[in-house]
Amino acid sequence: MNVNGESISGEVEDRMLLVEFLREHLRLTGTHVGCDTSQCGACVVHVNGVSVKSCTTLAVQAEGGDVTTIEGLAINGELHPMQQAFKDNHGLQCGFCTPGMVMSAIDIVNRNGSDVDEATVRKELEGNICRCTGYHNIVKAVHAGAKNMGG
């Protein structure tokens, strides 16, 4: 598979999850595990441009695909517009849910366009749990990021 633009190959057990492959084989520890029931969304990455929960995806399911993790968003140190929007709007506190939030947010904008409304953002963030921010600033950040991505 292709991970963050680099071609990667490895032998894995059938049962290995994508998140285990990313964290333990590739040491891409930005993708987190916050639950074991596919609810919290800390593990969200993009496979072929679409957000997936890597804790419920087998590594072999991504075979031959393009995987983007939080580590692959910034280009030459310059933050992706959504990352920048999270920083500008204080959309993160402890940072643990943040990688999944940012990956989901980009997907939300990709699917709903840059003028996505608040109700849609809140509804579509339902699969990402944050305990710190109360979501207020995350929602603000998604809107700001949407504008920047659209421009």
């Binding site: 930005g30 920083k87 940072g95 643990f96 940012v102």
Partner: peptide, 16 residues
Amino acid sequence: VRRKEDYRFLTGKGSY
């Protein structure tokens, strides 16, 4: 002030 800690968290470089 925008937070000094954010860059590492936003780029997956936090160390938990």
